[in-house]
Design a protein around this nucleic acid. Structure first.
Length: 509
RNA sequence: CGCGGGAUAGAGCAGUGGUAGCUCGUCAGGCUCAUAACCUGAAGGUCGUUGGUUCGAAUCCAACUCCCGCAACCA
């Protein structure tokens, strides 16, 4: 059995800069893969992110800005990479669907689907909305004249375009029963479990989907094999990235998607697609249909196994509990938050302060409170107490042989529970349990009073050694969430250097 | 009767039949090694409403009320 672990985020559509929802998804993905690396080793973990760059919306946005699509998506992709740097998103591959390496494998999916008899041609005539990238039925059109013409899309309130074209369709309905059976037999695949009803509804109603567009209307996409008048519909090409990056439909995984050649070698030598896939996917609430229904059908047409685990991230809501919206103006900018509080505080809040799989409001007050109480007051302060006392009393620290058995067992108990939570991707619970462990450290030091005058040096040394052992565990298990601080904490403990690990934060500063 | 999620302490959430919990916040006491931190304790909830099943309901059933999402930017 493969001990390799693959996780991918959903490729965001690059028509804007990242918002706080992307931030949450990317951070959770990063936390999971950092944890996995600590257990399985760097070479056995593959973390994919990237950008979805085709489609009419990008094409038109570029044109509006007077740019070539290529130029436009290059700029945006660069912005997303900077965003990853800013938030310490330690991805292995950054996959771009407009890159040349994407063409061949995406077309390979198409060919396989054709070979299976899952692709057919159908004529389409109707009013097309660019915003939805969909043809609209009468019901979905508003403000049309007496002839039923020149209406607008009920959703986008934009003029519709009369379009007559022949498109290719994917026989998704063929896989309805198979997918329903799959989700019934593997209820653990989808997290949280409460999302299952919604998915079953989607699957039950699943119909064939259009998977191509006329090149006349849209030149920005991947050519349909054997028909140079059509390009693939953006969703069909984009979804395939999850396995294309691993080497599907080509000789090797694309080197260009890696940070450097060395990483490429490390991840790709001595391993095949089958070692990595099926993997884990994380996605937002609104992507359930695409990731859990359409993509799963595409996998079936290509004879690939279903995704191993589907993690449906909760939505980050505005502080009043409503959905964030640029129009309403209640969005939270990750760039702004980073500037105010720093990447690690935001990371910590999004993981420890917000339920991992439910919708929850984003409140700066809560961010500041949880950062101050869990990190500064509890963990950081304990670290400082221990180092300070050890230095003052001139006793040993970090000597594992001196740790009491009972104490060690207690810590190992925490550690094993914590690993269980990480393995189940229960990130908020994991973060809170590390906090509990740090709290236990503070209780323990209070009880044993290594500062009291009547304590012998042996007693003090024992207490502080137990605590340095506890701190080592705290550092290790917080590391996936707040990597930089933990690296610093480990050094401080090792070198017995006092210092303020976490500066207190204030709202708005 | 479109579909789905939700309503539990000031806030954010756990809790799917057996004495209401967690984190943050608030208040009081203790300690003083430490980042005015830490430790202990307390206050605060008729678990949306009404009815039902049950020895027993936050939990199961029915009806109702309210909020949110399924529509744009968008995970």
């Amino acid at each position: 059995m493969s001990n390799k672990f693959y996780l991918t985020t959903t490729l965001p559509y690059v028509n804007a800069l990242p918002h706080i929802g992307h931030t949450s998804e990317f951070i959770k993905a990063d936390v999971i893969t950092r944890y996995k690396r600590s257990v399985l080793g760097k070479e056995n973990v593959w973390f994919n992110v990237g950008t979805d760059e085709h489609g009419l919306k990008n094409y038109q946005k570029a044109r509006d800005l007077g740019k070539e699509p290529r130029e436009y998506v290059d700029e945006l992709a660069a912005g997303w990479k900077e965003f990853c740097e800013l938030y310490r998103i330690n991805y292995d591959t950054f996959y771009r669907t407009s890159a040349s390496y994407h063409v061949k494998p995406a077309q390979e999916f198409w060919k396989r689907s054709v070979a299976k008899g899952d692709v057919y041609k159908k004529e389409y005539k109707g009013w097309y909305c660019v915003g939805c990238e969909e043809f609209k039925t009468e019901k979905e059109i508003i403000e049309s004249d007496e002839k039923g013409e020149n209406g607008k899309c009920a959703i986008h309130k934009k003029d519709l375009v009369w379009t007559e074209e022949e498109n290719y369709f994917f026989r998704l309905s063929k896989y309805r029963d198979e997918l329903l059976k799959w989700i019934e037999e593997n209820p653990d695949v989808l997290k949280p479990a409460k999302a299952k009803t919604e998915l079953v509804n989607w699957l039950s109603e699943m119909e064939d989907i259009s998977i191509s567009r006329s090149k006349e209307n849209l030149g920005w996409g991947i050519d349909v094999p054997g028909d140079d008048t059509q390009v693939m519909y953006v969703w069909f090409d984009a979804l395939t990235n999850y396995v294309n990056v691993l080497g599907f439909g080509q000789e090797f995984p694309p080197k260009e998607a890696f940070k450097n050649e060395e990483d490429w070698r490390l991840k790709t030598q001595n391993s095949k697609l089958e070692d990595w896939w099926p993997g884990v996917q994380i996605f937002g609430v609104d992507n359930l249909r695409f990731q859990c229904a359409i993509w799963q059908g595409i996998l079936l047409t290509a004879d690939l196994p279903q995704t191993k685990k589907l993690l449906r991230n909760g939505f980050i809501l505005a502080s009043d509990g409503t959905k964030m919206s640029k129009t309403v103006g209640n969005t939270v900018s990750p760039f702004d938050q980073e500037e105010k509080y720093g990447a690690e505080a935001v990371r910590f809040y999004l993981v420890a302060g917000i339920p991992t799989y439910s919708d929850s409001p984003y409140k700066e007050d809560d961010l500041v409170n949880i950062y101050n109480s869990h990190l500064a007051n509890n963990f950081g302060n304990l670290l400082n107490r221990v180092i300070h006392l050890a230095n003052t009393k001139e006793v040993k620290l970090n000597d594992e042989d001196l740790v009491e058995n009972d104490f060690k067992e207690k810590i190992l108990g925490y550690e094993s529970r914590l690993k269980g939570l990480y393995e189940e991707y229960d990130l908020q619970e994991a973060a809170n349990l590390v906090n509990e462990l740090a709290t236990f450290g503070n209780e323990y030091i209070t009880e044993n009073e290594p500062w009291a005058k009547d304590k012998t040096n042996e007693e003090i040394e024992l207490t502080l050694n137990n605590l340095s052992y506890l701190l080592k565990t705290v550092i290790e298990l917080y590391a996936p969430i707040i990597p930089d601080s933990c690296e610093r904490a480990a050094k401080m403990l090792e070198k017995r250097e006092k210092g303020v690990l976490f500066e207190k934060k204030e709202v708005g500063k």
